[in-house]
Simulated scan of single mutants.
Amino acid sequence: MTATVKRRALAVVATLALAGLALAPSARAQQVVADLSRHLVGITTGFVGTEVLLFGATEGEGDVIVVVRGPDRRETVRRKARVGGIWVNTDEVAFPAAPSFYAVAASGPVGEIVSPRILWRHRIGTENLELRPVRPLDASDLAAFRDGLLRNKVRQGLYHDKPGRVTFLGNRLFRANLYFPANVPTGTYTVEVLLARQGQIVSAQTTPLLISKIGIGAEVYRFAHENSVFYGIFAIVMALAAGWIAGVIFRKG
């Protein structure tokens, strides 16, 4: 089955699921309900990135905002300066709880859906992320290191500085494609779906998504972290053996 056929089949299944959500009693009780096409993304040795389909339904009209956030990680930002004609690190700042992944999707421009105050309250948009350094900084240094962290994450494809698109199918059913790149960190992600009306958030739902290594790659990763000394020795032995074999082959040649 080709990728195009798979996407079309998934779209049909999602549409049927959307209809089921809209008719379910729980959907009528809540103002917004949503789900994912899968709750586990498995990373194998050949993983090149993937999309996860989010679909849902609203009770009445409104705009939908989706916020995807990866597990918090410690991130360090370094400042470089030219010293004696050489670029060296002159300062660094650590942010102990920065999202490892961050993306937003919306059914319209988020600045027109809700006010800046509500965007800040719900941490919608990279400019509203709460990034606290481990040590006090003055305003200019904090802004510089914060901007550096955001630039690094955007360049890596782990922060999306422009919102994706939430598409409505009629007045109530909606869907969005959530993309995760090949270098996406592992862990438990949260997918928060917000329903807005007249500039206010009136309903919300959070769904977990697990991204995990599977297969032989996961076993190697686990062994390397749980037995770092033995893994290091094994890697050195393998490198020496590979060098010796290459030397023998070249001598024979």
Rank of each mutant, 00 (worst) to 15 (best):
I236L: 13
V64P: 03
V83K: 08
K252T: 11
V237Q: 06
V184Q: 08
P163C: 05
G56F: 02
V52A: 06
A17N: 10
I211N: 06
T50F: 06
T206M: 01
T45P: 08
A81C: 04
D35Q: 09
L54H: 07
I118V: 14
E192D: 10
R82C: 02
V220G: 05
L194S: 07
E51F: 03
A143C: 03
L53E: 11
A98D: 07
I201Y: 04
G199A: 00
L23M: 00
A94M: 09
M1H: 11
L131S: 02
V48I: 12
E127Q: 14
D141E: 14
L149A: 10
P109T: 04
K162L: 12
I43T: 00
G60P: 05
S107L: 00
T206H: 02
L194N: 00
A176M: 03
I118Q: 12
V68Q: 06
G125Q: 06
S100F: 05
S107T: 02
V93P: 09
V184Y: 03
I43H: 05
V202T: 12
F55P: 01
G164K: 07
R82Q: 06
G148D: 05
P99A: 00
A98M: 05
D147L: 10
S203F: 05
T2V: 03
G62Q: 01
D161K: 11
F55G: 13
L209F: 08
K153W: 09
I86M: 13
Q156L: 15
G164C: 11
W244D: 06
L10N: 08
A27N: 03
R74G: 07
N152V: 02
P25R: 04
V134Q: 14
A3E: 13
A106K: 02
I86W: 15
I113M: 03
Y159L: 07
L36G: 02
R151Y: 06
Q205I: 14
H225N: 14
L195F: 10
L23V: 11
K213F: 11
H225K: 15
I113V: 10
R79Q: 11
V237P: 04
G60H: 07
E192Y: 09
V93S: 10
F230Y: 14
L40W: 00
L149S: 06
A241P: 00
L149H: 08
A17R: 13
V88L: 15
P208Y: 04
R165L: 15
A204H: 01
F47K: 03
G247W: 13
A235S: 14
L173G: 14
R165G: 01
H225Y: 09
L131E: 00
F145I: 04
L149D: 04
R197C: 02
L16A: 14
A139M: 03
I233D: 02
M1P: 08
Q31L: 13
R121H: 12
G20F: 06
L178S: 00
R172L: 07
D161R: 08
K213E: 11
F95H: 09
D91W: 07
V154A: 15
V67M: 07
R146H: 08
T190N: 01
R74N: 14
I65F: 04
P133L: 06
D147I: 01
I86K: 14
K162R: 12
L21V: 08
A94Q: 07
R135G: 12
A97Y: 13
S37W: 02
R172P: 00
K6T: 11
A143K: 15
T58R: 01
G164A: 09
P208R: 05
E130K: 07
L169K: 13
L10A: 09
G148S: 03
K80I: 12
G253C: 03
